[in-house]
Computed example of a mutant assay.
Amino acid sequence: MSNTPSVPRYVIVAGEASGDILGANLIESLKKFCPDAIFEGIGGPLMAAQGFQSVVPMDRLSVMGLVEVLGRLPELLKIRKSLYQDCVDRPLTAFIGIDSPDFTLPLERRLKEKGVLTIHYVSPSVWAWRKKRIFKIKKSVDLMLALFPFELPIYQQHDISVECVGHTLADNIPLNCDQAQSREKLNIVNTAGPVFAVLPGSRRGEVERLAPLFIESMSKVLKDQPDARFIIPVVNDDRREQIASLLKGSNVDAIIVDGQSRDVMIASDAILLASGTAALEAMLVKKPMVVAYRFTKLTYAIMSRMIKVPYVSLPNLLANKALVPELIQDDATPDKLAKTLLTTWQEFKENQDIQQTYLDLHKMLRKNAGATAAQAIVDLVERKQAERKP
């Protein structure tokens, strides 16, 4: 087969909302190099707004946990097989997997064996657990696009082409955010007490495990701060209905907001959130936070034996110290979460060190990610095409 299409064609796979953000920014930047390029694969609404064609809804890939994925395995394998066949049957410029490594890396490996150029955007946490994956990664990708500087050494040690591109969120979020403006947007005015943003995750399974815990924590916060207000951003109607149902019967009168998670964070005085990209965004908007997570018991039993780093949240990994509190699994109790949230909120304004660290990390991650990633991809494509010429 010919690997070079007459019109540049990129097949991109993003499996969740954070990947959709990165994918949209990348497509926008790649179009500046090749305006007539075709972008297809699996992505979300932000990528679609850039002209991307998704063959299945992105949420079909949004599943987390070693055990949880088993129930969806037949469907995921069918989707992956279909993508592989499309990439083999129709010439493409490159395949780009954005995160979702358990889905994308095996696909990338098979495609690379067929001579397809493969790029992976967002390093798997190979530096933290399952370190032997680095050998599979080497066989799977022509280029790794990493978000964070601490991810580079393991790739360099194994002679894998890698580039640190920073994070789109760091580029898009101002160094200083306007809380009053965000409160006005959300119609949060005349607040006597603190405003807490609460983000129990975007997936149904996450919300099932974390929202009841967070609601109990909010209830306990109200005992100390009766005037406190809570805002919960949701990604879609299903999460809105799920959270509204869980709030019924509690004494917590939370405001549920469709989307606008960044404005919700900026409007808040402190944030209680599920571990993930939200913690990075909370750091970038310079808010005190408490990071919490609960896995199923079996998933946690497996993962806790494999993880080799002392932290789970990105702010702590980037700072290489306990910058923000992490309450994971059995430590994530309503009493501990409520107490830690209140303490973190009350102490933050006086803590100049953490505020300066937030700012320093934000500046470090500002690398114009989309353009930097696009340039690295275009350079790789041109180099490989030159090598193929007789």
Score class of each variant (00 low, 15 high):
Ile256Pro: 13
Ile256Lys: 09
Val257Glu: 11
Val257Phe: 04
Val257Cys: 13
Asp258Ser: 10
Asp258His: 08
Asp258Thr: 14
Asp258Cys: 01
Gln260Cys: 09
Gln260Ala: 12
Gln260Glu: 14
Ser261Pro: 04
Arg262Gly: 02
Val264Glu: 06
Val264Gln: 11
Met265Trp: 07
Ile266Lys: 00
Ile266Val: 15
Ile266Gln: 04
Ala267Lys: 06
Ser268Ile: 08
Asp269Gln: 13
Ala270Pro: 09
Ala270Thr: 09
Ala270Ser: 14
Ala270Ile: 04
Ile271Tyr: 01
Leu272Lys: 06
Leu272Glu: 08
Leu273Asn: 08
Ala274His: 00
Ser275Pro: 10
Gly276Cys: 05
Thr277Gly: 03
Thr277Asn: 03
Leu280Glu: 01
Leu280His: 03
Leu280Tyr: 03
Glu281Trp: 06
Ala282Val: 07
Met283Glu: 12
Met283Gly: 13
Met283Ala: 06
Leu284Lys: 06
Lys286Gln: 14
Lys287Glu: 01
Lys287Tyr: 04
Pro288Thr: 07
Pro288Ser: 05
Met289Pro: 12
Val290His: 07
Val291Phe: 04
Val291His: 09
Val291Cys: 10
Val291Gln: 05
Ala292Phe: 09
Ala292Leu: 12
Ala292His: 11
Ala292Lys: 09
Tyr293Asp: 06
Tyr293Pro: 05
Tyr293Ser: 05
Tyr293Val: 09
Tyr293Thr: 01
Arg294Val: 13
Arg294Lys: 15
Phe295Thr: 03
Phe295Tyr: 13
Phe295Val: 07
Phe295Ile: 02
Thr296His: 12
Thr296Val: 08
Leu298Cys: 13
Leu298His: 10
Leu298Gly: 12
Thr299Glu: 11
Thr299Lys: 08
Thr299Arg: 05
Tyr300Ala: 10
Ala301Thr: 12
Ala301Tyr: 02
Ala301Trp: 14
Ile302Leu: 15
Ile302Asn: 10
Ile302Arg: 08
Met303Phe: 14
Ser304Lys: 14
Met306Trp: 00
Ile307Asn: 03
Lys308Asn: 06
Lys308Cys: 03
Val309Asn: 02
Val309Trp: 00
Pro310Thr: 00
Tyr311Leu: 10
Ser313Val: 04
Leu314Met: 14
Pro315Thr: 07
Pro315His: 04
Pro315Phe: 00
Asn316Glu: 13
Leu317Met: 07
Leu318His: 09
Leu318Phe: 12
Asn320Lys: 14
Lys321Pro: 01
Ala322Ile: 02
